[in-house]
Design a binder for these strands. Structure first.
Length: 265
DNA sequence: AGTACCACCTGACGGC
DNA sequence: TGCCGTCAGGTGGTAC
């Protein structure tokens, strides 16, 4: 599930627990998510420090003190875990990479489903280029947003989820944004008035920032959020009296309120 | 260009 | 209890 808000929360965890700490040892325990060799990863980490992090969409990049960057993608089930217990083997489940700091702390990359990525890249720009990512959803203005979507003929949900257009939105947060903007997921972009696109942009910014503020924890979401009600038959969080329904858009399961989110016609 | 579907992978959950 | 099918959902590839 890690999308932009989740990865931003992960970034803050890593900033708080790992920056400027000497990496004494890097242990790779699962090579299936590596985009580089095991030895390249270890060689670039051991004896070095992370000095800064940068998030682009769902990717997290950590600058190392030699200038190259650690690239991390969390896939659907990835997350970082930091702990300070002296015993490095008391680690969480599904660890793929564990960093042991010289002062005794640890940071692990965990990922149950092994759909993710770890690698070493020259720069964030190179990584963005190689993965064909559009601009990050937080680093574009309302004019950029309108221009990026202008001339596209797809459905609004599919387009927002397309990382080549805008980087950061996945299934869950796209649904939330469309619910709050009261747009049907299958609305064709070309049907949207420019003013509606501006509203959609504002909603996207608001929802993503709020999500980070409540640490992406569904239990802490505001009352009017769809997030804790992502299943068929749940009462509409806008209180319209309708029920949450499931819809398939481009092969992805989406949730929405058929009463609040009508297709324009 | 856009849609649809599959594969990757594994844990959770519902049905019987 | 326990097996089994289905779902989850990010990315990437293919077919149309």
């Amino acid at each position: 599930m890690p999308e932009l808000p989740d990865v931003e929360v992960f970034k803050r965890t890593i900033d708080r627990t790992a920056l400027d700490r000497q990496i004494e040892h890097a242990k790779v325990s699962d090579t299936r998510v590596l985009e580089c060799s095991d030895s390249t990863l270890r060689r670039n980490l051991q004896g070095h420090r992370l000095t800064d992090t940068h998030r682009h969409g769902k990717y997290l990049l950590g600058r190392l003190d030699h200038g190259r960057w650690l690239l991390v993608h969390f896939g659907m089930t990835g997350y970082p875990v930091a702990w300070d217990e002296p015993d490095p083997d008391r680690e969480p489940d599904h660890v793929h990479l564990r960093l042991d700091f010289s002062d005794g702390g640890h940071l692990a990359y965990c990922n149950t489903r092994k759909l993710g990525a770890l690698g070493i890249v020259e720069s964030p720009e190179v990584a963005i280029e190689e993965h064909g990512l559009g601009p990050d959803a937080f680093r574009l203005g309302t004019n950029d947003f309108r221009e990026l979507l202008a001339g596209r003929r797809g459905m609004v949900k599919s387009t927002l989820m397309n990382q080549e257009v805008i980087a950061g939105l996945g299934n869950v947060w796209t649904d939330e944004i469309l619910f709050q903007a009261r747009l049907h997921p299958k609305t064709a972009l070309r049907e949207l008035a420019p003013g509606t696109l501006d509203t959609l942009y504002d909603t996207m910014q608001t929802v993503l920032h709020e999500a980070i503020d409540f640490n992406v924890n569904p239990d802490d979401a505001p009352e009017h959020y769809l997030l804790p009600r992502r299943s068929e038959g749940e009462p509409c969080p806008h209180g319209c009296g309708g029920e949450v329904a499931k819809i398939t858009v481009s092969g992805r399961a989406g949730y929405y309120c058929p009463t609040c989110q009508q297709r324009p016609d």
